[in-house]
């Protein structure tokens, strides 16, 4: 009887702990949504002011690489969801494996993004570093300021996500400590949020210069 009561209390404590952690993380994600929303809204406002230069500037971006990166990030969301699924199961061996896969896909995303940045630097599209191309009008340069700010903020969030995922993964694999399932769930929520941000950034930045314009 006492054992049953203790187990019930323990389950109730866990349920409350999980609920509190999720609620706190959702409030944090809400504040992050306000940050990215402000940046995106500012971009849309400028885009309304300079529609043609922004479409011209968007055509300079590598849509194929952007599409590939979106596919990679969506795949990383699947591996993260699989990690959470595995962490909840009785056999947790799959969880660190899926977490490592998620981090690897995140690194791949950043590598491709870095290559894109290099190409843009090479094409003199970075407004404050490379020698400015006189053919680029100020509104086109403004687009690239927004582009680097938005994608840079996203990349920093992704980098933070990769570090957290690798920390959770390594603690779970190499130490005697077992990471609680709720921690994996919260890391997963953050990762999916970063994925959602990119889902909106991709059409907003990359698909403005296509034939639909």
């Amino acid at each position: 009887m006492i054992g049953d009561k203790k187990r019930t209390e323990s389950a109730e404590t866990y349920r409350r702990r999980r609920w509190t952690a999720h609620l706190g993380l959702w409030v944090f994600l809400g504040s992050e949504a306000m940050l990215f929303g402000s940046l995106a809204l500012g971009f849309i406002g400028l885009r309304m002011l300079y529609p043609e230069p922004f479409a011209v500037a968007s055509a300079h971006l590598k849509t194929a690489l952007g599409t590939l990166n979106t596919a990679i990030l969506l795949t990383s969301s699947l591996t993260m969801a699989l990690a959470v699924h595995a962490a909840r199961g009785t056999r947790r061996v799959g969880a660190p494996l899926f977490l490592f896969g998620t981090a690897a896909l995140g690194v791949l995303f950043l590598t491709i993004k870095g290559y894109e940045y290099y190409q843009e630097y090479h094409d003199h599209l970075v407004p404050w570093w490379s020698a400015r191309d006189p053919a680029l009008s100020p509104p086109v340069q403004l687009f690239f300021v927004c582009y680097f700010f938005l994608t840079g903020a996203h990349a920093l969030h992704l980098l933070l996500g990769i570090i957290i995922v690798l920390m959770v993964c390594s603690i779970d694999t190499f130490s005697a400590l077992r990471i609680p399932t709720v921690t994996v769930e919260c890391v997963g929520l953050y990762w999916h949020f970063v994925d959602i941000v990119w889902i909106f950034l991709f059409p907003l930045l990359y698909l403005y210069g296509g034939p639909s314009q």
């Binding site: 599409t67 059409p203 698909l207 403005y208 034939p211 639909s212």
Partner: peptide
Amino acid sequence: LALTVWAARQPLGSTGV
């Protein structure tokens, strides 16, 4: 995602965005 990229390649004007 494939649909997004396909739609962006169609001549839909400003509605494409």
